[in-house]
Simulated scan of single mutants.
Amino acid sequence: MPMDPTEIERLIKAKLPDATVVIQDLAGDGDHYAAKVESRAFKGKSRVQQHQMVYDALGGRMGGVLHALALTTTSPPD
C-alpha cells in the first residue's frame, strides 16, 4: 500500500518540529519519493547522522510501506 506524502511530512515534523519539508512523488506510484528537509537539529551533524534522524522519524517504514526516499538534508544558514 502506498504511503501518502502528507503522512511522510507529518512523521518528520513530529520528530523535527522546526523542519521545512518538501516531498516530491518521483514515479507517481506513491512508493518513490524525494524529500528535502531543513532543520536546525541538523546543525553540526554529518550528512549520515542527518539522514538517520529522518529515517528514525519515519519509524521503520523505509523499505516497507515507503519503498524509496531520495533524501536531501540541510540546516538553515545562521
Results as ranks from 00 to 15, higher is better:
A41H: 11
S46F: 12
L69M: 10
V65N: 01
M1S: 07
D29E: 10
A34V: 06
E7Y: 00
D4S: 03
T20K: 09
Q50F: 15
P2W: 06
G63H: 06
K45N: 09
Q49K: 15
K36L: 12
R10L: 05
D25G: 04
D18Y: 04
T6D: 09
M62K: 06
T6H: 09
Y55K: 15
Q49H: 13
E38Y: 03
K15T: 02
P2K: 05
Q24M: 12
S75H: 13
D4P: 01
R61D: 01
V21K: 00
R40I: 14
R61F: 04
I12Q: 00
M1H: 08
I8E: 00
V48G: 11
L16A: 03
G30V: 01
A41K: 12
K36N: 07
S75R: 09
R47S: 15
K45M: 14
S46V: 09
L58A: 06
G64C: 04
K45I: 05
K13R: 11
E7W: 01
A41N: 08
V37F: 05
R10E: 07
M3N: 01
V37L: 06
R10H: 09
T20Q: 10
Q49A: 15
Q24N: 14
L11P: 01
Q50K: 14
M1V: 04
S75Q: 11
G60T: 10
M62E: 08
S75Y: 13
H67L: 06
M62S: 07
L66E: 07
H51L: 10
K15Q: 04
G64H: 12
A14C: 02
A34F: 11
P76L: 01
A34L: 09
L69S: 07
A14T: 02
D29R: 07
E9P: 02
D56W: 13
Q50R: 15
T6P: 01
K45P: 08
P77T: 08
V48D: 13
I12C: 00
A27T: 11
R61W: 02
K43I: 08
P76E: 00
V54F: 13
P76D: 00
A41E: 13
G59M: 11
A41Q: 12
S75D: 12
D78C: 09
D29Y: 09
K13V: 00
T6I: 02
K36T: 12
M53T: 13
D4T: 02
T73M: 04
T73L: 03
K43Q: 15
I12W: 00
S39T: 08
T20I: 08
M3K: 05
T72C: 12
L58I: 07
D4Y: 03
R40E: 15
G28R: 10
E9S: 05
D25A: 04
Y33G: 02
I23V: 09
L66Q: 08
